[in-house]
Design a protein around this nucleic acid. Structure first.
Lengths: 358, 358
DNA sequence: TTGTACGCGTTATCAG
DNA sequence: CTGATAACGCGTACAA
């Protein structure tokens, strides 16, 4: 009963699914057209070389004419592979992420993979929900700045290949740019400008990266003999930065690092609205170098992260662990492997200057 | 240096892929556990009410204990439904899109759908490639500012439900915010400020929206007796705006509309770098009201688009045509149907002012 | 090299 | 209301 395919030559299909013009062509259709067995078609399409050149050509032609497209769901059933990778970010509207997103999307498309996107809206719970839903669908998962606990991430990683961006968890792959170079330059610069008391406006409580940034800055400040204080954590948005303004003014720091550019921008604008002169009254530094950080007046000094490269690297690496082949190697100039991610880098603009005299 | 941690905890997994503890539980497992037939399980899980409350409960319990999760691929095979919708945008890094993306993603998640994202990088060819790949996978497709031809879109729409954002094509669903209100207010304001010659910096050649914006502005200018000229099309980015600066200066317009905020920002910055005073020397208006458009000096006056709502509306509408049920109607306050999309709206900030005297 | 037959997990169509 | 059984489209041992 191999030939159970319903008559499918343009006649009406009774009942069921008449939405699409005609049901999508299957390997059976192309097999019939090419006068071979469906399994031969399957082979010709999936593993080139396992079929005689002649029949392969016939099959390719037939596939072309029928405008054939594999049904990845049908394929996923036996193989478990879906040619799809999931990406979860904590906030889609944070410009820092769309460079990561684009990097991942571009790299995915080049390898003929598709990206599934979800956001956690800074909530561990949402993140878990999204992750669970994706887990069933994707070959691998990229978690950018996850808000999940280490344990939760490990559970996820036990089920499917997972790679973390800007986060480290024992036993899980990750890609994070080295903060050292950028931070070292920044603190050195501040020291040279006479700053002796600096503050750090922290990001979300659960953010691994926020803590990491704090620690890195702290280490460099200690080295320079600069006092470093911390302003209570907040949401990593422009609004969060605004809300930190009061606390910042209350302190006596003459320069402040913000967890990210969004907060730095919010802080700067709120302070300016209150009459503070930046940088004369206070120097402000952000992290990431996002879109728009050079639009402000003064333009924001910031520690640039290789966002795009991070996205690319994450995707490439996670695909390598899945053993993805058949890249349409247009840009395989990077050679095998993800290749190293550039370091962070200080971008000096107008929001930093000499320390005000006490 | 990049720090890429290899998965490396105690328990080594030998060979290929023994990763998942045990194969995911199926309805057979839960059928066995509940002492019923697999098909009963299927019914209990998919169509509530078609099974006795008692057995349903037993099944639910068993499913819970086994931590069961439907295999959407297996489900997709007979039904053709994947609980997934595709979204293709022309440029992921354009902030205008991520409000759309977020709107769609949020609405999708609320309906228990997942979003697949791709970008066309402003290329019709890439867009077609992405669309084809998605077509096999998704229940429906959202095309935001597509660069495809009308015919290509119609072909796509014949295969799967398609909805257009900011574009209209015969016979295809679309959601477009009404430009009239915002443009009318803007032109009226400009007229009141003494402008008699205006210019429009166009977007991409193939952009339906760019043409539409031109036409709308033109109509209003005619009404006010204002002369309107057009500056050659360009890429809809900050860089594209910069490149239009020379042409704008060459003209004698005292105010200029740009295709979008990105171009407006680029134009403004390039002009300022060349010593032009905004708005005294030239008034500049953008479209969209993207993130960062208020960071500039002067802050950009713009015609705001309901981006987020557009994304939500697109998703809801396309899902309705697919007949998606089971929404976790947290925010179903809009009632049935997508509900109307808000109009555009003039946001007056600092980049517009009185016309310079000739 | 090519064809046969079966399984993947689920839904749908029948009987019972 | 429930159980058996046939698809769904594709990959893949195994046989020819």
């Amino acid at each position: 009963m191999t030939e159970t395919t319903p008559a499918n030559d343009g006649t009406e299909q009774p009942g069921s699914r008449a939405r699409a013009a005609k049901a999508a062509p299957t390997i059976y259709d192309i097999a019939e057209r090419a006068g071979v067995n469906p399994s031969t078609v399957s082979r010709a399409l999936s593993k080139p070389g396992r079929v005689s050149a002649k029949t392969a050509q016939k099959i390719m032609d037939a596939a072309e004419e029928l405008n054939y497209q594999v049904n990845i769901f049908a394929r996923a059933l036996p193989t478990g592979r879906t040619q799809t990778v999931g990406l979860i970010v904590s906030d889609i509207t944070n410009p820092a992420f769309f460079d990561i997103i684009r990097g991942a999307e571009t790299a995915a498309a080049a390898r003929d993979y598709t990206l599934m996107l979800a956001e956690s809206t800074e909530s561990a719970e949402h993140e878990m929900t999204a992750a669970r839903r994706m887990l069933a669908t994707v070959d691998a998962l990229i978690l950018a700045s996850p808000r999940l606990s280490d344990e939760e991430i490990q559970v996820l990683a036990a089920k499917k290949p997972v790679i973390l961006v800007n986060r480290k968890v024992d036993g899980v792959c990750s890609v994070v740019a080295d903060l050292e170079p950028g931070v070292a330059d920044a603190v050195r610069h501040l020291a040279a400008m006479g700053h002796t008391s600096i503050s750090y406006v922290a990001g979300p409580e659960r953010s691994w990266m926020s803590k990491r940034r704090w620690e890195t800055i702290k280490a460099r400040c200690d080295w320079h003999g600069i006092a470093l204080s911390q302003v209570a954590a907040g949401v990593p948005t422009v609004e969060g930065g605004r809300r930190a303004a009061a606390a910042v003014r209350a302190g006596q720091a003459t320069a402040v690092f913000c967890y990210n550019d969004l907060m730095a921008i919010g802080l700067m604008r709120e302070l300016q609205a209150a009459g503070v002169d930046v940088p004369a009254g206070l120097s402000i530094l952000g992290f990431d170098n996002i879109f728009g950080s050079d639009f402000t007046t003064p333009p924001l000094s910031t520690i640039k992260s290789p966002l795009h490269e991070l996205g690319v690297a994450a995707l490439m690496q996670v695909l390598d662990t899945v053993g993805a082949g058949a890249g349409a190697g247009a840009d395989s100039g990077t050679g095998p492997g993800p290749g190293p991610v550039p370091d962070t880098e200080l971008v000096l603009r107008g929001s930093t200057g000499a320390a005000r005299v006490a």
